[in-house]
Design a protein around this nucleic acid. Sequence first.
DNA 1: TTTAATTCGGATAATTTTATCCTATTTTTA
DNA 2: TAAAAATAGGATAAAATTATCCGAATTAAA
Lengths: 144, 144
Amino acid sequence: MFSKACEYGIKASIFIALSSYKGVRVSLKGIAKEINSPEAFTAKILQDLVRHDVINSIKGAHGGFEIEKTLISSIKLSHIVNAIDGDSIYSGCGLGLDTCDEDHPCPVHHKFKSVREELKFMLENTNLEELALNIKSGASFLKM
Amino acid sequence: MFSKACEYGIKASIFIALSSYKGVRVSLKGIAKEINSPEAFTAKILQDLVRHDVINSIKGAHGGFEIEKTLISSIKLSHIVNAIDGDSIYSGCGLGLDTCDEDHPCPVHHKFKSVREELKFMLENTNLEELALNIKSGASFLKM
DNA sequence: TTTAATTCGGATAATTTTATCCTATTTTTA
DNA sequence: TAAAAATAGGATAAAATTATCCGAATTAAA
Ligand code: FES
Ligand code: FES
């Protein structure tokens, strides 16, 4: 469904959010360990998220990644997915036609539309706060 | 959402179904032209679909691909997707955990589950007949 | 002011997906 | 029986994605 990059990006963001609530800044190394992802590749993805203002980075000793506490609840999964994979999941044609166009639909257009819109709605209505809290409470997990 | 291979596979199957209703066998060349796909790559995918008994192939002059008329309505999108992309869309974890496990869920598990199940339901309840008829009536299109 | 701990960014490599090419095989028809 | 029209399948190439490596820049602390 999502690219590896996007999967790592989502998991990293959740962990950063969780740590930010605790007031601790996390390093690339710590993130990669926690979400079980390749370190250097994860670095690229985090850079991307920084550029898209999803997370903040602080260079140098005692540096790391964080998210401003007050913003965590307003960051939606859709922001992360958009930053990394773009909007093709929502806007592109499920069968690869040049554009998804109501007036020139592919054979699965009407059937796919509702699924895609449910996905879109879900991504736009799920924020990092709730995901982080579920990790905190032990209701969900970031690896294995 | 789907791989290119899967997109081509779905479109090819629809076109083969449509042709089979008309009683004409279609060649690789004809298919690739109709669905705007690379010929040799499409050939590989069609071979796959033949091996998985989704379509039939007839070698030699006047050969080509076809689907037994009586079977068209019983072939579901899920058969095609499964043959080409496998079942990872349904069964795999959306965030790439080793397994999607209710007892060890990833942070998005519960939110994703319903989307994935709607997708699964849609694929399992959409057959080639209806898709082919929509092409026939001009209600949907296979390229551009 | 030096050192250590970091992120940043460019270059490169490995893997997977997508695509192409060419030959073999099968089948119909002339 | 020979030729032509097809699919089958192996080998290879191109492109995209995933992953690694290393030096540069930045910052805090000793
Ligand atoms: S045209 Fe294919 S999904 Fe809309
Ligand atoms: S555990 Fe991730 S989707 Fe079920």
